[in-house]
Each structure stands twice: as C-alpha cells, then as structure tokens.
C-alpha cells in the first residue's frame, strides 16, 4: 500500500541523510500549538529562507509548506490543545535549506498519505485533505522519523533546494 505513494521526493531522501553530518544550524523557533501563532511561524520561515538566498517566490513556497505541516499538527494532532508546543529548526548546507518540525503528538508519517484524486476532489467539492498535498508539492524532499530518548518526538523534515 505504501509503495503507491512513493515518488521522486522520497527517492532522494538517502542523499539528504548522507549530508546531515555537515549542516549549519541557522535558527530555532518554539511556539504553542495555536492557530494564532501560524503567522509568526510564517514570518520566521520567510525571514530565514530569504536570508539563505531564496527569492521571494521560493521563500513563499516554503512558507506555505511549513504552514500546512503546522496547521495539520495544530488542527488534527493536537485538536484544541493549545498548551503543547512545536519546535521549528532551520539548518542548511550549501544547496539546501532544511526545516525540521518537531512535536510530540502521536506518530503520523505524512509521506504515506495518498495524494488526493484531484478530479474526484473537484467533482465532489471536497473540503480539507489538501494540506499534505500542497506541502509535498512545494518542497524537494520530505523525511519523517520518530525518536524516543525518554521523551517521544516526531521530526518532520522538509528540504528545499536553492536552485
């Protein structure tokens, strides 16, 4: 079942992992799981991605991808719990900007969410379910892992190439 959703974005994950050793840490941002904080998350991503060298267009794409990931966490994983937090880390190497979104909600790997059938979606006027599709469309690679060293964490990694 999972193999159906594998695409070029997952295939280059191996490459990205190999590069993880030499990453520059750029910035870190921690915020509560409230929708009112989405705007400051977006500002944080925009500021750091233009500083890294993205043009405004590419920076906005990354902003939207991160918004969709965080909106999913806030609305679905945490429902109305606004006392938890999300941490966003930005790292880079020469050619990629890497955004880690870290939270401790129940494990959920968005890479294996099947892309919506857009024709059915349009014909049936479906609401919702498009956030993950948007997120996947706007970055070059997505990785996800869980870690448990005393505290359980999800780490969703979005990678966007400079060129």
């Amino acid at each position: 079942m999972t193999s159906q959703t594998l695409n070029k974005k997952q295939l280059i994950n191996t490459q990205i992992k190999l590069m993880n050793a030499n990453l520059n840490h750029i910035a870190k941002f921690k915020t509560f799981t409230k929708t009112e904080n989405l705007e400051s998350i977006r500002k944080f991503i925009f500021k750091n991605s233009t500083k890294f060298g993205f043009n405004e267009y590419k920076a906005e794409e990354l902003v939207l991808a991160v918004d969709e990931a965080c909106t999913n966490l806030i609305k679905h994983a945490y429902k109305s719990d606004s006392q938890s937090s999300i941490t966003i880390e930005i790292k880079s190497n020469k050619t990629n900007l890497i955004v880690n979104i870290i939270d401790n909600s129940p494990a959920f790997d968005p890479r294996y969410v099947k892309d919506p059938n857009m024709i059915e979606y349009r014909d049936e006027y479906r609401k919702g379910g498009l956030g993950i599709f948007i997120m996947k469309s706007l970055v070059d690679s997505i990785d996800y892992k869980t870690i448990n060293n005393g505290e359980f964490k999800n780490i969703l990694t979005l990678v966007k190439q400079l060129k």
Partner: peptide
C-alpha cells in the same frame, strides 16, 4: 493556505 481554500469548498455545493 488550504484551510482558507477549504472555506470556499464547504459552501460551493
């Protein structure tokens, strides 16, 4: 964002 687009989808039908 998709949350905004979803508002229109919920009324259109």
């Amino acid at each position: 964002s998709s949350a905004g687009l979803g508002v229109f989808m919920s009324f259109i039908q």
